[in-house]
Simulated assay, not measured.
Amino acid sequence: MTEYERSRTMPAQAEHVFDQVANVAQLDAWLPDAVHVDIEDPPAVTVHEDRSGQDMPALLRSQPDQMRMEWGTREQGSYTGWLQVAGIGSGASEVTVHLSFFDDSHDPGEQAVYDALDGSLRRLEEQVRLRADNTGG
């Protein structure tokens, strides 16, 4: 098993950040560019990876009371992940994303994963900022 994790501070309260994370209609705005999620019958989703060209049945669960999202492949069990939002005071929060690959053939490699995680967290921060600007805070 290979695991990866990245965190980023966001300039908004944890509840505000989690609202953006949990908005399934906005997932493509911050997920890695090569990953696309088709929401079927939640928690069932289909994930398309541009790298492999495959569609994979997956699960996506939101736990608002814990400000946590969890996901993973449904049938193969080759991949899981979670995202946790935590308030850190002064109107800021920290977002941590953790990925676990149980099948080495599904793991795109350390550099690719960290690049994707860093890019996703950066885009999420942009979405959070845009939403805060549009709502006046």
Rank of each mutant, 00 (worst) to 15 (best):
H48G: 00
V17Y: 12
E15S: 11
D50K: 14
N23A: 15
L99N: 05
G72Y: 02
A22M: 06
D19S: 12
D33W: 08
Q76L: 13
V47S: 07
V47W: 14
S105D: 12
E110N: 10
M69R: 03
W82N: 10
V95R: 03
Q84A: 04
P57R: 09
I88D: 14
S120M: 11
D28N: 05
G72A: 02
P64Q: 08
V97F: 11
G119A: 10
L60V: 00
G109D: 06
S100F: 04
H48V: 02
L117H: 02
V17M: 12
F18Y: 15
D38F: 07
V45I: 15
A25S: 14
A34R: 13
N23E: 15
W71T: 00
E15L: 09
I39G: 02
Q84V: 05
V35N: 06
S52T: 13
H36C: 02
V17P: 11
G91S: 03
M56Q: 10
G89E: 06
L83T: 03
E110F: 08
A34L: 08
S120A: 15
Q20C: 14
F102N: 04
S100E: 11
V21G: 00
Q66E: 15
S78Q: 12
D38C: 02
D118P: 04
G119E: 03
M69Q: 11
P108I: 03
L27R: 00
P43W: 02
Q13Y: 13
E70I: 06
L117K: 01
S100Q: 13
D38A: 09
G77H: 09
T73R: 09
H106E: 12
I39A: 06
G53A: 10
Q84W: 06
D115E: 15
I39E: 05
G109N: 07
I39W: 06
S62L: 15
S100T: 12
P32M: 07
A112V: 11
D103Y: 04
A25E: 15
P64N: 08
A14D: 10
G72R: 04
L31Y: 10
W71S: 03
V35A: 10
T46D: 09
F101I: 07
A34K: 09
E110T: 11
E70D: 10
V17F: 14
L59G: 07
H98D: 08
Y114M: 13
G81C: 04
